[in-house]
């Protein structure tokens, strides 16, 4: 009896591990920046290149930093949702225009709508590296103290908004 049960048991353990493996997404690399202060930046604005925006400007409010580019196809997928979210006025969204061409980026916003309070230009991707960006789009939720609380890798979806991002934002906004 035992000689049949042991291999069966071993097989079941293996099967459970493999099944857990199937549900994991290898693209979702957990960011070490969660619960750490958002890297500081001082970047020129997209619409008005003379103006500079600093990450400290947003201290005291909960905000979202969305990394986007006109060359990024998945950004187009999530864009209508961001526009909708911006119109709802729940949370201010700031855009990090990542390794893009200014004119194309501006045209892109004209065409698909501009959900951003301000878009800032990271033309050489340096700030992107500080934020651990490796696939655009990526979205960060940053709290009142300037701490990164959530990172969405890949496009924001209705599901991720409803289940994770919006409840988190509400919770963070209620904090003093």
């Amino acid at each position: 009896m035992m000689r049949y049960l042991i291999p069966l048991f071993a097989f079941m353990v293996l099967a459970v591990f493999l099944m857990i493996g199937l549900t994991l997404n290898p693209r979702q690399v957990p960011s070490p920046l969660i619960d750490k202060p958002a890297p500081k930046f001082q970047l020129n604005q997209l619409h008005d290149s003379d103006k500079v925006m600093s990450s400290d400007d947003n201290l005291g409010k909960v905000w979202m930093l969305n990394v986007w580019a006109s060359w990024c196809v998945a950004c187009r997928d999530e864009h209508p949702l961001l526009v909708q979210l911006a119109n709802a006025g729940i949370v201010p969204i700031y855009g990090l225009n990542y390794k893009d061409d200014r004119n194309t980026a501006l045209q892109w916003l004209k065409r698909y709508g501009d959900p951003y309070q301000i878009s800032i230009v990271d033309s050489d991707g340096k700030v992107g590296i500080n934020y651990g960006v490796y696939g655009v789009p990526e979205t960060y939720v940053i709290d009142k103290k300037g701490i990164i609380r959530h990172k969405q890798i890949g496009p924001v979806t209705v599901d991720s908004l409803e289940k994770t991002i919006l409840p988190l934002i509400k919770e963070l906004q209620d904090q003093v």
Partner: peptide, 8 residues
């Protein structure tokens, strides 16, 4: 790099 991208 590890600080930004993790051990991965």
């Amino acid at each position: 790099l590890v600080d930004r991208y993790g051990d991965f």
